[in-house]
Design a protein around this nucleic acid. Structure first.
Lengths: 219, 219
DNA sequence: TTGTATTTCATAACGCCGTTATGAACGCCG
DNA sequence: CGGCGTTCATAACGGCGTTATGAAATACAA
């Protein structure tokens, strides 16, 4: 797993091959099969790792008196994680990325529960009267999809010239807060407030490698 | 190109191989090389095709007295195109998708100019006093990234249960209009108004296959 | 400790992929 | 007619995921 993670981070998805990993580990290709059940099993494990890292960032977002600022910080943490581990993020959501294989529908489900933290924060925003929308899950999905799209296009180098990623991101952040119901003035204040707290998240350190699928909380 | 497009649409990215296409065409693998310069050239052509289809939808969005409704319709057209050609959309933005190859940075640039129509519409929204934000390109990028993210996760089957794609999409649409500056009431009216016009777009028909990169308007 | 059962992995092969070299067939034009 | 450039069929190379096979190594029971 360590070797695979290093190869992915250093040389991109193309270097993630069973043969290459085995060679790098000084073993034979079979090791990948006995330990991970083939290439798809290894990638599955890497996806778990990716979500574990994201959750590690999310876990460091502390609740404050301003839930909207907390929410904006979740957005910053999400983008920070993706930009820090771009290839891993591509594997998590790239889908058809690696050699014509794809994750199980079940695998995709696991990762989505990472959103639960964000849903709870959305609920606090609603309870505080800051968000007009009543459904915290819907709000979380709006934020998630929007920021995921920005990050995807940013990592793929698609953003057009005068609109660099940080600029669109900041605009999107306040736009989203206003869009889901907050007023412009408080929203911008909260977004500004969240900016300083990003550095507090720092690097959560390499989490213990996920040995299995992340635990799924009962709905 | 027709065979490649059919294979991609019917059997997904995994079926897009030079050998398979050649066999389907009753020729040898070499034909792919003499005509497209290898697999990457063929995929490049398919990306052009994908953007051509998107532009065909965009071209059918007519200006009305309500520029915000026009803008919402652009969003609907974008999602409609992606949902109609899911695999093609994945190739356009999947990046590392097919067999460890990737598009040139230049290729990515071409497609981005498809946004220019949306930018002009954003400018009309701003001129009409409906959007607070002053930069039409920034607005276009916010809408693009947000809807792209939604569509990506929708096609990847990532959206969580009670939040089906249409629901998140509708919420996102009004949320975005409000977020970039419109007031809630007019925004919802415009979004509602755009809903009926989506059916007018229908299917623009298969555009003439793009033979080269799409024309890039001078900035 | 010994014998057995289970896991782990090295070797080799199969079929697939993109790509390339080679040479034959073909159309074009002087 | 004869040379020429394009087009493509054939065959090969290296790399990929995967599988079968068998040999070590390990775990475990007696």
């Amino acid at each position: 797993m360590d070797i695979a993670a290093r190869l992915l981070a250093d040389e991109g998805p193309a270097a993630l091959s069973a043969r290459r990993i085995a060679a790098e580990a000084g073993t034979s290709t079979m090791a990948v099969y006995t330990n991970f059940g083939g290439m798809s099993g290894l990638v599955r494990q890497m996806v778990y790792e990716g979500f574990a890292r994201l959750e590690a960032y999310f876990a460091r977002v502390e609740q404050t008196a301003d839930p909207v600022a907390d929410m904006a910080l979740f957005g910053r943490a999400y983008r920070h994680n993706a930009v820090t581990n771009p290839h891993l993020y591509a594997v998590m959501f790239g889908g058809a990325s690696l050699g014509g294989f794809s994750l199980t529908a079940e695998d995709r489900q696991y990762g989505r529960f990472t959103l639960s933290t964000v849903v709870q924060c959305a609920a606090r925003c609603i309870a505080a009267g800051r968000f007009r929308t009543g459904d915290p899950e819907l709000v979380a999905h709006q934020l998630w999809t929007a920021i995921h799209g920005l990050v995807t296009l940013e990592l793929g180098d698609y953003l057009i010239e005068p609109c660099d990623a940080p600029r669109v991101f900041e605009a999107q952040l306040t736009g989203l807060m206003v869009g889901v119901g907050d007023l412009l003035e408080p929203a911008t204040r909260s977004v500004r407030a969240s900016e300083a707290r990003l550095s507090d998240l720092a690097d959560p350190g390499d989490p213990a490698h996920a040995v299995g699928p992340p635990a799924v909380p009962e709905s």
